[in-house]
Design a protein around this nucleic acid. Sequence first.
DNA 1: GCAAAAGTGTTGCTCATACACCCATGG
DNA 2: CCATGGGTGTATGAGCAACACTTTTGC
Lengths: 222, 222
Amino acid sequence: MSYTYEFPHPAVTVDIVVFTIENDDLKVLFIQRDQDPQEGEWALPGGFVDIDESLGHAAKRELKEETGASASFLEQLYTFGRPDRDPRERIITVAYFALIPSDQLSIAAGDDARDAKLYSTNELPALAFDHENILRIAMHRVKERLSDSVYAFQMLPKAFTMYELRRVYELFLGEVLDKRNFRKKIIALDQIEETGEKRESVRHRPARLYRVKSVNRVASPP
Amino acid sequence: MSYTYEFPHPAVTVDIVVFTIENDDLKVLFIQRDQDPQEGEWALPGGFVDIDESLGHAAKRELKEETGASASFLEQLYTFGRPDRDPRERIITVAYFALIPSDQLSIAAGDDARDAKLYSTNELPALAFDHENILRIAMHRVKERLSDSVYAFQMLPKAFTMYELRRVYELFLGEVLDKRNFRKKIIALDQIEETGEKRESVRHRPARLYRVKSVNRVASPP
DNA sequence: GCAAAAGTGTTGCTCATACACCCATGG
DNA sequence: CCATGGGTGTATGAGCAACACTTTTGC
């Protein structure tokens, strides 16, 4: 089967930057390519958009197929289209990013991927194509988002402590935040509430657990 | 001549939202379509991306070809890709927006366009495809940009008064701003300077003219 | 008892807002 | 002389940053 057009058409792909926090470290999900070009190199999960699916759908599907991960919320990041960004043919890629709690990330390399794993943002492998650039821009975008809303809870389990929430901010922003001021700011945003439970069995005073208020579960720019 | 691929490829277009201020009114540039589908309808200028040009280049080229307008600065807005957004075939469009001073806008319908003209955002024609949605999102983005930098001078001539600058904000934000506070805020941003000249021959006290400091001429997110 | 994180308030500063009057010019 | 926008300063309140000590648990 083949498809013919009167004018040349670029291929369109999606790439997804999945951020998660594991072992108190900010990590990103990559796959090891199983095919040329750049076979064996690490790259962002992604792939071709099917002709009758939406861009967001393609992003979720490719992420699932290649890594086993499910993203409930994706934000479109930017569209990269330099003519020379892929050696095969003209490929325009629509990049997305997601924040996923590590306890909801079940990773299993699939389709087109020899392997799939998380890398710390402090110890990145060499990346295929322009994916290092895409990642840089994604981190920048997340920083922006954090500064004007409670956005970080997407990376946390349903119940989380103030400390855990604060760590998300600290890892993205790359600076330490004052415990008291942080708590005040978050409470003022009025988007989370106490569960009444505490995080027990730790070798220090147990911390209160919080959850997202149900009103604030959805978010979808623009 | 025809082009054949193993898998179906979507077409990729760019669409450009050009904002300008004319007669103290916020306007957007539209073309009247000269071809099916939606012949005769008004639409955002735009068209197919050539196979070997960048997305930004395509946006500038299409804008020039269809309307005669030149944009020195474009920002990528968002990529729209619903499978049913165009009846012809699957078309994914990368939307851009530009702010252009009306004295630098020379409009002349070209290529694929029966007519090209500015419409006030208060009196929009019916628009083809999903262009009304694109426009709405573009206005939202410009509002965001205005609130954290001097961005508005892109819509003004090289020399402009505080009043003119303030009107740009007022027209986008849809509210009146305090003259004194506005001046203070803009001066604090330290991005413009007095030219030493005044806007003469007006039937009131002449206003000082300002220009953008040369350091601040460029801007290019992300 | 000690290590380790949880939890809590106050103060000063900066920034945004609200607000009213005289000035320079053209007609 | 009048209509029109140009230009100026101050006072108040909100929000943010800086800062240290006591509490609760596991080991």
